[in-house]
Design a protein around this nucleic acid. Structure first.
Lengths: 200, 200
DNA sequence: GGGATTGCCTAACAGTGTAAGTTTTCCTCG
DNA sequence: CGAGGAAAACTTACACTGTTAGGCAATCCC
């Protein structure tokens, strides 16, 4: 090797993640990223196919990190309920610790920058495992989706400050989760009250 | 009036919304929008302060429309439970009917393009009213947030196709809502099991 | 030391949002 | 019926973006 290389894919993704958190997705420009790495923009294209591909890498890495945090949180709790509370907390911690990355992962994704399926699976697995400890196998998928929805919705809305009316949403999520867990343990109400209508 | 004006703010926002749904946020460019209106890009700036301002207008209009849909859905249901199911359905209908607008509203918003507070309030009001029929006044805020979180999370995840493993999430949302409603009616489990820890 | 190879460069293109200044078009008024 | 005025949209331009094509220079192997 002639030159010792000045940059590398890990260095690029690290710097990109930092820049993402500081400036948001739209502020993550190839030129600014290159500037921070002491290099010119076109040089990045020797290590990364395109900007969308770079975002896809961040997306996948973020999902794997989220999965690892969920797994770690789950491993420290005894009961299924405590496990889910710990995971909800980890979920919110990830979102509030890396808000822009969280938004990148779950925001509008032009298909070019969507994470690999394996990364998404890595994030979903610990949740499915926890749900499996809670209900029978045939209900796992529905229950996991309900739990994920509640936690994800809460986190997303809190992150985008849609909960405008005061309070401490970061803690109240545990109350909401308790309600849902209570409903799950009681078996719900049976069939839906209204027939869902599908609208185009 | 010298010319009869060829464009107007409503014409711009209408075309912008159509373009948004067709091409996504990043595809909504001022030049393409102008081209569709038979005009050049700089002319748009007589009616709209900036692209971000245009997105803010779409955002506000979308929130008001969502609020109207929720109100309409609620008005057709007798019991509080049926009302919430109908609203959940309306929420999903809005999201699946105008996915890009939904993502614009609840996605990452650079503060410049965030909707006016009154629009957000218009969307939240029907939910707060329905929650008020379900629980006592002191719990309304928490319960409304939990309900909104569940429905929003479910809709968001289904919309971004994070629910990869088959099934019909559009209908399963009613099951999840039933679980949460059952838990709310039973009063939950009391205090949280784990103490929430706040992480930077 | 010479040649090859590699890593980064500069230059350029097509696209973006947006500001300044200019032209065109119509209505009104004398 | 023609002149003035004003409003609408125009052209031009700038700084920025992602990205490609070709070139220079620095290192390693022989």
């Amino acid at each position: 090797m002639p030159h010792p290389a000045r940059i590398s894919e890990p260095a690029i993704t690290d710097a990109a993640r930092a820049l993402l958190e500081q400036e948001g997705v739209e502020g993550l420009s190839m030129r600014e990223l290159a500037r921070r790495l002491g290099v010119r923009a076109p040089s990045l294209y020797f290590y990364v196919k395109s900007r969308d591909d770079l975002l896809r890498l961040l997306n996948s890495a973020g999902l794997r990190e989220l999965g690892a945090m969920l797994t770690a949180a789950a491993s420290g709790a005894a009961t299924p309920g405590a496990r889910l509370h710990a995971m909800a907390d980890a979920y919110a911690s990830f979102a509030f610790g890396s808000p822009q990355l969280f938004r990148l992962i779950f925001g509008p994704c032009p298909e070019e920058r969507r994470a690999e399926a394996s990364a998404a699976e890595a994030a979903a697995r610990p949740l499915l495992a926890a749900a499996g400890d809670l209900v029978s196998a045939e209900d796992v998928l529905d229950i996991a989706r309900a739990l994920w929805s509640l936690v994800h919705g809460y986190t997303t809305l809190a992150l985008s400050e849609q909960f405008q009316m005061g309070g401490e949403p970061r803690q109240a999520i545990h109350r909401a989760l308790d309600y849902l867990l209570a409903g799950i343990e009681s078996g719900g109400r049976g069939a839906s009250i209204v027939q869902p209508r599908v609208v185009g």
